[in-house]
Design a protein around this nucleic acid. Sequence first.
DNA 1: GTCTATAGAAGGATAGAC
DNA 2: GTCTATCCTTCTATAGAC
Lengths: 198, 198
Amino acid sequence: MSLNKPSSKRAALLDAAKQLLWERGYEAMSPRDVLDRSGAGHGALYHHFTGKQALALSALEEIAAEEMHALDEIFLGRLPPLQRVCGYLRRERSALRGCRLARLANESAIESEAFRQPIAAFLEHIATHLQACLKAAQQDGTLAGNLDPAAIAAALVAVIEGGFVMARVYWEPAKMRLAIEGALQLLDSVSTEARAGG
Amino acid sequence: MSLNKPSSKRAALLDAAKQLLWERGYEAMSPRDVLDRSGAGHGALYHHFTGKQALALSALEEIAAEEMHALDEIFLGRLPPLQRVCGYLRRERSALRGCRLARLANESAIESEAFRQPIAAFLEHIATHLQACLKAAQQDGTLAGNLDPAAIAAALVAVIEGGFVMARVYWEPAKMRLAIEGALQLLDSVSTEARAGG
DNA sequence: GTCTATAGAAGGATAGAC
DNA sequence: GTCTATCCTTCTATAGAC
């Protein structure tokens, strides 16, 4: 407690903001909510950050870093490229909670470049991984060569993000799984690998 | 002006609400905004509706009806089934504005069944049309028979909704088009029709 | 049916003590 | 660095006149 550790409340504020951004989004996250959950007082917030916006931005950047790191782990490994794609698509997700980053796509704050940046970087990170796998699959002959890897990667990212939207609109996680299943069937049809299950 | 038309402000309120729901979403749409835009006074709103929620719900239902009707027109006609699917996917959209209905997926109000209903009905309407086309295509032999129409339809809906999200996150309408292009390439690869341009 | 006046609560931030 | 006290604005709704 009396260790020489500066700003113990700063981390608590960031943690609370990260949770609330996922649960409620940016506009619906009030400074009061953050304070209650973090246990910090009003002063701490405005000492460490210029305001709600700056706090949210720092939180967003941490979230993006965490998620991109998690992605790297999924795409690591020596599996055949299309199986890595499949592994990403089948990844366990809490569909009803929505995408931790892209859930903010429809907030008015998204019109700010600074706010958009970490979210776009995250989507781009997914697309880059997918595209690399698709190219590798084309080179080793397991994926049809006439497809555009960038376009297919974008479509797959859209299936994931759209799947989150569907799960929430129907309030049924299975809807997201169904959409992903459809994407896998299409992908399977254009691949020449032995079927691995699905 | 002096015609015997009851509640002229009711329609104005609904119109304003329909616009604002698209532009800002539910929580960010304040009664004040609606009044300013509609030209109605405070009293008119609370006379015709019990409050903001009821107004938004009525507006949502009108929006869903309009959009479903527009869908019916797109899927009408005598084109081959896969070309109708293609026509829907290529439909002109204002990507940066987001989906008029599903843009509300991440508002906390979505947890209410009544709020969800018109939005889910809209997505279901799209999926139903798509699924019918895919089944027809399988029957006339232009689509691979091993695919599950329900899953493919869900995947295509997800591509559209996810495409909207991507366009807004990147603030680049082309991102949505790229995702749709990827879906079309996949669909094209599992169809046996002569290429119609892709 | 429509308006103005008003109200209680919450949002977001500043000032200044400790 | 952290807290409490305070401030102004906006949100959503009610009351009651016209």
